[in-house]
């Protein structure tokens, strides 16, 4: 790992100031950034620790659930509030990585990085979440802009994520057995935003909405409603773990399992 200066700001304003340096990188739980630094794939001059900004915690107001950016996956997975209001979100958090990763990894870090195989982007997009940042609020529909790309501006940090409880929702994934990342992850939701089906892990451009599945499930909310509906192979990712055809097939299988979970 290349060396860097380590800064621990105590306020969001101070963190934003430090991150005005284009060579500075924010550190949340570090479960992606530290492996990246170890591989020397990134060479920041300064690493800005976001863990002491007071951005951790879960609050509920009516049907709105707000999760602070540095709330860990473990905390979300075990939260009574999340389990009650959006159980699919707690279940998703409990499926990320492994127990040690869940102790450190954070929801804000996952969404800021927008890894194409990360779990949280599927939930944020399917539930129509609002990403609150140091500067503004961003709708999930505008937030995700392709692999590792988001609407965040340089130096802008996520402070919280706001979810509205759906009527029904579930997440299912087919994990890579070594990394636990999603080979294919599908989040299905029915609620105030209508029926939404999002897919992570499989698409070449990161998380995406599967509009053909959405139309079918709007007519009939059942696994069988997805019979015979194809997933375009040419938009699928392909690597040593699975071909594009394999992933396209898995999207259908995993989506059916997700719908079945809600019944």
């Amino acid at each position: 790992m290349y060396d860097f200066a380590f800064q621990t700001p105590a306020s969001v304003a101070d963190a934003v100031k430090l991150l005005a340096d284009p060579e500075a990188r924010p550190l949340a739980g570090g479960q992606t950034l530290i492996p990246v630094l170890k591989q020397r794939l990134n060479k920041p001059t300064t690493v800005v620790d976001l863990s002491r900004l007071g951005l951790s915690g879960i609050t509920v107001s009516g049907t709105t659930l707000t999760i602070g950016a540095t709330t860990t996956h473990r905390t979300v997975a075990r939260s009574a509030e999340v389990k009650q209001l959006i159980p699919a979100l707690a279940a998703l958090a409990g499926m990320i990585g492994d127990p040690a990763v869940r102790y450190r990894g954070t929801i804000g870090g996952s969404l800021a990085n927008n890894d194409p195989t990360a779990d949280y982007p599927s939930a944020a997009l399917a539930l129509g979440a609002t990403i609150k940042t140091s500067a503004r609020s961003i709708a999930a529909d505008e937030y995700f802009q392709g692999m590792f790309a988001t609407a965040l501006q340089p130096g802008e940090i996520i402070t919280a994520i706001e979810f509205t409880a759906p009527e029904k929702a579930a997440y299912e994934k087919f994990s890579n057995p070594a990394s636990r990342y999603a080979m294919v992850g599908v989040f299905v939701a029915r609620g105030p935003k209508g029926v939404r089906v999002t897919v992570t892990g499989a698409g070449q451009n990161g998380v995406f909405r599967h509009t053909a599945f959405e139309a079918a499930l709007s007519k009939s909310w059942s696994p069988d409603a997805l019979n015979g509906i194809a997933t375009p192979v040419d938009s699928m990712n392909a690597d040593i773990h699975g071909s594009a055809e394999y992933r396209a097939h898995l999207v259908g299988v995993v989506a059916k399992r997700a719908v079945a979970k809600t019944l």
Binding site: F6, T8, Q31, I34, P35, A100, V101, R104, A178, S179
Partner: peptide, 26 residues
């Protein structure tokens, strides 16, 4: 070198974490 094997797990403030994926200063 990839944060996958878990041989480095220690408890930090009671939490089992991978000590290869946490900075000493953290």
């Amino acid at each position: 070198d990839t944060s996958q094997c878990g041989a480095c797990v220690v408890h930090v403030d009671g939490m089992a974490v991978k000590s290869c994926t946490m900075l000493a200063l953290s």
